[in-house]
């Protein structure tokens, strides 16, 4: 198991800087902005693709694909809707389904005539959403290293709790209670973000 005691210590850029970089690529094909994104995301993407089942060489190949896709599709990024990490995660996730599972990932099409659009959000609802997104980030940051490893093992690698216990060298009861705690916190953040009142 990789060390996760301080996974953010090497964080090279803040979410706002990263988001701005994608906007700059979309606006003016800004190569310096791309290099900033590369430095932050390439090592994490490689890590992600290894977790999803790739060997290091394949993981690096798909990392390149993901970054080229980022450059090509930068115009699709909407900084009001998602953070840079979230948007790049969706690119990486779709690539991993395509490459590792050889499956398609069906998604909805907002331009489909049968699509039911969002209702116009009142301004205070938008503020709430921004606030909730900040909460989510804070909740994620407040998770312990163990909770985070457990989340990753289940979210990214789809392991059973027996397997997770084995990998972390913990009793299964401990793993279960940590998962319960971690997802409990996330759940509260998810509900807050979607406007569901408990």
């Amino acid at each position: 198991m990789v060390a996760m005691d301080n996974p953010r210590s090497d964080r090279s850029a803040t979410p706002d800087i990263l988001s701005d970089c994608i906007v700059r690529i979309a606006a003016q094909q800004d190569q310096a902005a791309f290099e900033t994104l590369f430095k932050h995301f390439a090592p994490r993407l490689k890590s992600y693709f290894i977790k999803r089942g790739g060997d290091p060489a394949l993981a690096e190949e798909i990392t390149q694909e993901a970054l080229v896709a980022l450059w090509k599709n930068a115009e699709q990024f909407d900084p009001a809707k998602a953070s840079a990490s979230t948007w790049i995660f969706t690119i990486a996730r779709n690539l991993s389904i395509d490459r590792f599972r050889q499956a398609r990932r069906p998604s909805f099409d907002p331009n489909d005539p049968a699509f039911i659009p969002d209702e116009e959000e009142p301004p205070d609802r938008k503020l709430e959403r921004a606030e909730a997104e900040k909460n989510l980030r804070e909740v994620m940051n407040s998770l312990s290293a163990h909770e985070k490893s457990i989340l990753m093992l289940s979210f990214y690698e789809n392991h059973s709790h027996g397997e997770i216990a084995k990998r972390l060298g913990l009793p299964i009861g401990t793993v279960k209670s940590r998962i319960r705690l971690a997802f409990g916190k996330l759940r509260a953040a998810l509900d807050a973000q979607s406007g569901v009142r408990p």
């Binding site: 090497d10 995301f41 890590s47 953070s83 979230t86 995660f89 969706t90 996730r93 985070k148």
Partner: peptide
């Protein structure tokens, strides 16, 4: 998806 983004950000860099 935002949870996924946060987790990606927290991955140990390879």
């Amino acid at each position: 998806d935002a949870v996924g983004g946060e987790l990606l950000d927290a991955l140990p860099p390879a």
